[in-house]
Design a binder for these strands. Structure first.
Lengths: 206, 206
DNA sequence: TTGTAATATAATGCA
DNA sequence: TGCATTATATTACT
């Protein structure tokens, strides 16, 4: 039933990047003394001017949701339904501009059990439309690893070929290689760190 | 990410593979060593070529490396020295710190495919040092987004002002707007694609 | 809990 | 500048 998409990879929208910034509110008064030379002032922008209706800017392409999305979204009369809706817009700035929503979400948090929250979270991610995690077979992994050993940057041609042979989307393969490279890098960083540390400590022992 | 777009065939990828230019840099003033070589040498790919008149063969400007470069990279004028040091993340360079291995690499030169050479190139810029990813604060993003809504092509003056107010490099801001425009475009493309597709499928159901 | 697929986006290089 | 591609940081699922 779930029509698997053809060529496109549809990420984008809806950033979850917020956790990256440790210090919010760091920048102090932005709205002080500003002689602006432009047609608009940064203060006015910062002064929380009205939302410009916020074009949703387009939903991400989620072919794997095609069959169910409208069904699921309309189906649920649960009051929390609105949560995911909010999340279709960029939390980084739409969420803030609606204190009421924010408040509501916050209140919800303390009245629900961990399990319930977890379930919400899951639903949320469904609404948001994360691609179901692909489970590679052992064989697929093996082939990919072998190719990776020889070439960690396979071009589109190789990826297509792999896709055909392994019966996977080319997209999955691309992502796999991306993650694989990241993993390699991570492990090298770690061993390097260990080496340096060992050198350091042993030099201390002399 | 991938986002191959609706093109699907991704011809540009292939193009990129074949269009690999021997010259990695275009830093102003470094164009003189056009060695008129028909193809790239591994040396040039690896950045090992001799420099003329003491000018670095065209190093990208990497101010963020200043603090550590001498420590981590060693003297830039000895390319053989800088390589192993940065191998903390690069598998290829472990091998290359060994002269014997290196020799082998040179011998293999003619056997490298374009794709492989490209990959070297990538590794090169990698060990040369990529700017650490900037993590914008929530506030910074908010401001940037607001400005973007009004003007997605801010001129240098606005960018400078933003830079001052947000305590960011003007460069970062420039890049941010570039990426933001790309994101907008992408989302437009995607929603358009979705629309077309939906129209198509619903017309099938009649 | 860990490993990793998926996502979002900052940075890079070329045309 | 756009564009394609990459690295990187993070999220979330099994």
């Amino acid at each position: 039933m779930l029509a698997e998409g053809e060529g496109m990879a549809g990420p984008s929208l809806c950033a979850a990047n917020t956790a990256a910034s440790p210090d919010l509110r760091k920048a102090p008064g932005f709205g002080e003394n500003k002689a602006t030379q432009c047609s608009f002032s940064i203060e006015s922008i910062l002064g929380l001017e009205q939302k410009k209706d916020g074009i949703p800017a387009g939903k991400p392409y989620r072919p794997w949701m095609d069959a169910c999305s409208s069904l699921v979204l309309g189906d649920d009369s649960d009051p929390h339904q609105q949560i995911p809706v909010v999340c279709y817009e960029n939390p980084l700035f739409h969420a803030r501009s609606d204190p009421v929503q924010e408040e509501k979400v916050f209140k919800c948090e303390k009245y629900f059990s961990v399990a319930e929250r977890l379930s919400f979270k899951r639903e949320l991610s469904w609404y948001r439309g994360r691609r179901p995690r692909t489970a590679f077979t052992r064989n697929q992994i093996e082939v990919l690893e072998n190719v990776f050993k020889m070439n960690s940057y396979p071009g589109i041609d190789i990826r297509e070929e792999l896709a055909r042979k392994l019966e996977l989307d080319e997209d999955r393969i691309q992502i796999w290689f991306q993650n694989r490279r990241a993993k390699l890098k991570r492990s090298h960083r770690e061993s390097q760190f260990l080496m340096v540390k060992n050198t350091f400590t042993s030099s201390l022992l002399e």
